[in-house]
Design a protein around this nucleic acid. Structure first.
Lengths: 190, 190, 190, 190
DNA sequence: GATGAATGAGTGTTCATTCAT
DNA sequence: CATGAATGAACACTCATTCAT
């Protein structure tokens, strides 16, 4: 009954994200999540050690999906700017389409649960992006600054602009998105 | 009768921020906050209608303080870049010194409570900054883009860079901060 | 400042009855009653020792008013039946006009507070009615039964019929009321 | 999984009645009732949606038991008076033996919870008694008056006389009970 | 593997009462 | 005399988690 297992695991993942988005981190009880997933609260404890485990797993799962999408179609043979553009758009579209994922991650990373995360695990997921930045610096295409600073100016804005909670009543046109990337690039290019 | 204690109000404000930072938004109970403030939970209800009122008031209080600091020393007689620089540094230093304020605001704005605040009230606080941006666009000093986009590229990074939780193990030197503002400016300048 | 005192005392009496009727015995807090009376909770404790004292006093006050009305116009020179009729109508009209008083008394007398009442005090208030019954028995006009039994068959029904909560959707016409007294009289007359 | 315990449901019913009788409707907290039933307060919420549900269910349960006993041994082949006598004695004995049930019902029906019960449901329980009255009127054996009036003069006194709180220090002999029914019958008979 | 029953500890909130003014 | 501030205890209810089936 391997199939059933994975179905339930996925159902629990989706239920966790959905519940947190619906009622907030504070009001997301195990009972509500289990109900949303269509299983008993007791069943949840077969798949996860406890609530913390559930939340952390959900967070890492989202981060993994985000990183997979972000790094998609990086092509070292193309000009560096094109690669940055690719990652930037990947991020923008993913967070646009999954505001629930983003909102969950945001609530999680501003909670004390975040301290339980092995930061290196997350960093490894985004290694291709860090490599991209490092390469850009070496090739003197972008400014020589810390990876975290570059990230703050290039990729964070993409996430913020795609978050309807932070940028309400605000629907970006294709052209605006293009322009926005130009700002990001202007910030870091040499 | 005893008079309402200004000190207690302030103590409750500080206790709310501190508690949310210590145990997270989700685990911040009225009891914990009251204990942190050194008053009875019942006393809290003399100063605030309920928990929601406490959290919203605390959030708006932080936003107000942040906006007051941010807009400090804006001087229309100076070049526009200097004014941007001033605001940028104001924000950076304020969030550096009050990472707890920032973290509270971040958790709040990613919670469902955020839907209960009047966005216009907050926008009004930051009107001088919006004016600055509008003036820059009119004077063709910065790119003609939506205020929210400009903000995302200039001021959000300042906040992120000063947040030790997001940028851990990372202490910015004076020079790095200066350079960071340069990135912000490069992003938006024409 | 004697006038003010009595005004407040009366206000507290009315507020107690009104509050109990509005939100029920269980939810009638000192704070709500004080607010309804337009005074501070602390003020209430100047006039009454504590909540129990307030409730008991209110109950006895109602009973006193009820007994005063009930015994009004008893006239020993008239035939006994006329006197019974008088008392019966007095009760019916009083409880009709003050369903709030009745409901308060009913809630009170079915609560453990009732054990704190000195029954003799109440009995004394209704002594004229008891006398009436005793006289009727002596004169062999009504059946020779215990005062409490007579009361249960004559006066209790009057109270019940006038209680809109027990007899809902039920508005008695003058004629029905007259007929009802006839039933009461038929029950006890010899 | 464990199965829902019939015993616990009954224990909660009894505990509710007993607690209300001991400390009064107003002071009957969920915690006290649960303790009396020997379960955790949390367990109570498995069997009842909330406190209101518990109290309403308990009330309807009592009303159902009362109606079942009241209507026992009604026999249409017997003279009407015998049937009235049967119901009257049924009520008297039931409320004599279960003064706690009666007192609960009385407190409940004078509380705001009473507005939440469907009166028709209760009326249906006592339909046989209403039928009896209607038949008596048709057969011109008893006076032609509203069912509620008849009830007030016949059955309410039975309940009141059996209530030790209202008729204290008062133990009715068999003969007195018989006589009392005679009063009830005299009130309504043609 | 899967479940709903069960619970001690906790939730936000209100209580009756006292106290300083 | 009169008050609103202050509170420990209690309120109804939900929590994360375990257990028997």
């Amino acid at each position: 009954m391997r199939t059933k297992d994975e179905e339930k695991q996925e159902a629990l993942f989706e239920a966790t994200v959905r519940t947190v988005n619906k009622v907030g981190f504070a009001s997301s009880s195990v009972a509500k999540i289990a109900k949303q997933a269509g299983v008993s609260p007791a069943t949840l404890y077969i798949y996860y050690k406890n609530k913390e485990d559930l939340l952390i797993s959900t967070y890492l799962n989202i981060k993994r999906r985000l990183s997979e999408v972000a790094c998609r179609d990086i092509d070292e043979t193309l000009p560096l700017r094109d690669n940055f553009r690719q990652v930037w758009f990947n991020l923008f579209w993913f967070t646009s389409r999954h505001p629930d994922y983003f909102q969950f991650a945001e609530q999680f990373s501003n909670s004390p649960y975040n301290d339980r995360i092995n930061q290196k695990t997350v960093d490894k997921m985004f290694a291709p992006v860090a490599d991209l930045i490092r390469r850009g610096i070496e090739m003197k295409v972008i400014k020589n600054m810390d990876v975290e600073i570059i990230t703050a100016f290039v990729f964070y804005p993409a996430i913020i602009l795609s978050n309807p909670r932070l940028c309400r009543n605000f629907d970006m046109s294709e052209h605006q998105i293009d322009q926005s990337f130009q700002l990001a690039w202007d910030a870091i290019k040499l």
